[in-house]
Amino acid sequence: MNDCIFCKIIDGTIPSIKVYEDEHVYAFMDITPLAKGHTLLIPKQHVKDLFDMPSELAGHLYSVAPSIANAIKTAFNPKGLNTLNNNGAAAYQSVFHYHLHFIPRYEEDGLTLVWEPIKPEMAEVQQAATAIADALNA
């Protein structure tokens, strides 16, 4: 895609600080990091989001993810690690090329992930599970 910042990173039009690359995926440092070691993992193929990603590409990307996470753990010894992916504008996706954030977490780093859970009845939870299972089996 001509106007995709991540496609431009992959083709070298925009510079990046690479940490990993193979035939299908590319990992690089986030230039607006939330913490030391914040890394992004993207497919080289332009895929808008997880909804559009072919399963074989997702399988490869997620097979690389533990190696990236463990490299961050070895390099920086964080106390934890968030992996984060946003799909669609309503989920705060801002770059419409799939990307998985690896955000190392440190004691008192000031980062918060705050949400207010809904409180459904168990019947509603069961209905949701049935709808998802039905969609998977369709």
Rank of each mutant, 00 (worst) to 15 (best):
I5G: 03
A58E: 10
D109Y: 07
I68Y: 03
G110C: 04
E107M: 07
A65E: 11
A91Q: 07
E23L: 12
V19A: 02
G37T: 04
E21K: 11
V114P: 10
Y20K: 02
I14D: 07
F76A: 08
L136P: 04
G88A: 11
Y92F: 15
I31A: 09
L111W: 07
P120C: 00
G88E: 12
P104M: 09
N2I: 10
D49I: 02
D49Y: 04
L61F: 06
P78W: 00
L34W: 00
A90C: 11
T32E: 15
H38K: 04
P33C: 06
D52E: 08
C4M: 02
T83I: 06
D109E: 09
H38T: 06
S94A: 13
I31D: 12
H60Q: 10
P66S: 04
V95N: 04
A65D: 04
Y26R: 03
L100K: 02
T13A: 13
P117I: 01
I5E: 07
S94P: 07
N2M: 10
F51L: 12
A90R: 11
D22L: 01
E23Y: 11
N70D: 15
C4Y: 05
F102I: 10
M1K: 11
Q126C: 10
V64A: 03
K48M: 08
D30Q: 10
D11W: 00
L50A: 11
D22N: 08
T112N: 12
R105E: 04
A58K: 07
A138Y: 12
N86Q: 05
V114W: 12
P33W: 03
G37V: 07
I132D: 00
H99V: 03
D134C: 05
T13G: 09
L41R: 00
N87M: 00
K18T: 15
H60W: 08
Y92H: 15
S67F: 13
Q127A: 15
Y98P: 02
V64H: 02
H60D: 08
C4W: 01
E116C: 02
M29S: 08
E107D: 15
N137R: 14
P117V: 00
V19Q: 01
H99P: 01
A90Y: 11
L100M: 11
N137G: 05
V47Y: 01
L34Y: 03
T74G: 04
A123S: 14
I103N: 00
A90S: 14
Q93E: 12
L34E: 07
T32C: 13
A35F: 05
P78H: 06
